[in-house]
Design a protein around this nucleic acid. Structure first.
Length: 576
DNA sequence: GCCGTTTTCGGCCCGACTGTTTTCAGTCG
């Protein structure tokens, strides 16, 4: 439903652009679409309660439209607007360098209302009849169409992290570089990004830009100017470079880190304080009040704010919190003392218990939870009752040897069966230190059925935490229908932990929900879902997501040292 | 269409690059 609202509001904005409506009205719809997309609670519930216009940016008009969508599944205003255009029309906005003005022209003069027609008109040269479209435009449109066919628009954070970091390293070691950082949604730790933004401070911009466009990873140069350049890498992702002076660096870094909504707040705050803020400077209207800004924290301070961690810059209350120095002290990777969701060769992992234990110990962890698949996950070589009991004994033996100086907890990733029951009898589950319960089958239940199914598992005294709550695979598979808000309430009531599955394909539960969960007292466990030793590194992505969800070490159970986590797990098992 | 510590009207961020035309409009971030 959320997705539907987001799409409708967004498409209304596009149509209004075509119609040449007031730019601020268009912005209001785009804004509304983003607000709904990023809102951390149950938007359907809020709509039912008639509380939509309590959200900043959603006024009367948008609220009533969203309510109509929630109640009827459609919006008559939108249907009316849309009736003039075929569905395929909206594809045109996905073509790079084509915006509303050009699309309008193409539509009016050549009746282009789909990508197929657009491609045809570019190829047969007809497009040059329209003023403003030359050969270069036609070629670049054809190229964009081809790219869209071959690549999805977004990339997973985990997939591009290695190349992003290696390009950053390359830029940093250039003798002309004085500072370099990655900005954009990558820096904010978004789960998917559509480009990587680099900011470099130098006195020799031309040389930096030349080095950038000549990197071996580059497949083509999209643009190249005096202060900025864009390239496409061989793996398909776009990289943007901004070159600035040392003085401009903190402003450029801040501006291009965003988010857009955060920037708007920053700029209006600047105006309120008698400044003008842009990507190059903070200019005081009063010449005697010019501030010295050496880094981002100086900038925040100048605006009366404490430093806001990039992960929080989504205009989700961070500005208000920074004004009263009430920002969370975010969890960091070094706070993690152990982790729980990990597989071994006993089910579908690639490394043995001993290898996993050693790798975890090498990372400095004090404890490692082993949770292989349960028997219903036949495809993953799930453990039968006997094999699980055997593993429990092996782990107990292993702990006695104290090998690798790490404590192993005996767990299982237990399937939540279609009716919400668990994959083992209580007599087996009670022998474990903990249990991660996950859905691995029957994904297409209705929202109510799926929600009830998972709640039933949450209510089991043997379930310690819920694994990959929505089952989503980023850019591959949608989350299954589940009412996250109700799940959070059930977890709060039953003292059940929710995991952040740190596998970059999942990053589930979504960061947008964590603030709500935290406020309700639900604890988090950051788990790599490791199927081999290298996967333990996924914890880094999990921490980013936790940071985006405002989580502090005290919200994350695997920040507890060994003695305290042992106590917590025991407590849980004696409640039964 | 939204918003309000100048509050119900009047403002809402703006600079760089490209491709086209020939001084600028459109797009992007």
């Amino acid at each position: 439903m959320r997705e539907k609202i987001v799409t409708i509001l967004n498409q209304i904005a596009l149509i209004l652009e075509i119609k040449g409506e007031n730019a601020f009205k268009i912005r209001a719809y785009k804004n509304g679409s983003e607000i709904i997309e990023n809102y951390g609670e149950d938007i359907v519930q809020i709509a039912h309660d008639g509380k939509l216009n309590e959200l900043k940016g959603i006024g009367k008009a948008l609220a009533s439209k969203i309510e109509e969508i929630v109640k009827t599944g459609k919006l008559s205003y939108f249907d009316e607007l849309k009736s003039e255009f075929p569905d395929s029309f909206f594809e045109l906005f996905e073509i790079a360098n084509l915006g509303p003005k050009k699309i309008k022209k193409l539509y009016e003069e050549l009746q282009i209302d789909s990508i197929d027609k657009l491609e045809e008109c570019c190829k047969n040269g007809e497009i040059s009849k329209v003023s403003g479209f030359g050969k270069k435009s036609a070629d670049s449109i054809i190229e964009s169409i081809l790219f869209r066919k071959n690549n999805s628009k977004f990339f997973r954070l985990g997939n591009i992290a290695p190349i992003a970091e290696s390009i950053l390293e390359f830029l940093r070691q250039l003798p002309q570089t004085s500072q370099a950082k990655i900005a954009g949604s990558y820096r904010r730790g978004k789960e998917t990004v559509h480009d990587i933004d680099f900011i470099v401070a130098t006195k020799l911009p031309n040389e930096i830009i030349n080095e950038f466009t000549n990197m071996p990873e580059v497949s083509d140069v999209i643009s190249k100017g005096k202060t900025k350049s864009s390239v496409r890498l061989k793996n398909g992702i776009q990289c943007d470079l901004r070159v600035v002076s040392n003085t401009e660096f903190p402003f450029a870094l801040n501006y291009f880190t965003g988010s857009k909504a955060h920037n708007v707040r920053m700029r209006s705050l600047a105006i309120k304080n008698g400044y003008n803020l842009n990507e190059y400077a903070l200019i005081s209207k009063d010449k005697n009040n010019q501030k010295t800004i050496n880094d981002e924290s100086d900038l925040y301070e100048a605006l009366g704010l404490s430093f806001i961690h990039p992960a929080l810059r989504e205009d989700q209350g961070e500005i208000e919190a920074a004004e009263i120095s009430d920002l969370p002290k975010l969890v960091k990777i070094e706070n993690l003392k152990g982790t729980f969701h990990n597989h071994t060769t006993d089910s579908d992992g690639k490394n043995s218990l001993d290898e996993m234990a050693k790798a975890a110990s090498d990372l400095g962890l004090q404890y490692l939870g082993i949770s292989d698949h349960s028997k219903s996950s036949v495809q993953a070589n799930g453990l039968s009752d006997e094999r699980l009991i055997k593993q429990i004994k092996e782990i107990s033996q292993y702990n006695k040897t104290n090998k690798n100086d790490i404590k192993i907890f005996s767990g299982v990733e237990c399937d939540i069966l279609k009716d919400g029951s668990l994959d083992y009898e209580d007599s087996i589950l009670s022998q474990l230190d903990y249990c991660v319960a996950s859905v691995h089958s029957s994904f297409s239940l209705t929202e109510d059925e799926m929600t009830q199914r998972v709640i039933k598992a949450i209510e089991s005294p043997y379930v310690t935490m819920i694994g990959h709550l929505t089952g989503r695979l980023l850019l591959l598979r949608k989350p299954y229908d589940i009412n996250v808000s109700k799940i959070i309430d059930a977890c709060a009531k039953n003292d059940t932990i929710i995991e952040i599955n740190a596998n970059p394909r999942r990053l589930d539960m979504d960061w947008r929900w964590w603030k709500t969960a935290k406020d309700k007292g639900v604890k988090c466990s950051i788990n790599p879902d490791a199927h081999k030793i290298e996967h333990l590194q996924f914890l880094h992505f999990g921490v980013k997501i936790a940071q985006k969800g405002w989580l502090e070490p005290s919200d994350v159970v695997n920040c507890l040292p060994l003695d305290e986590i042992t106590k917590l797990l025991k407590q849980k098992s004696t409640e039964q």
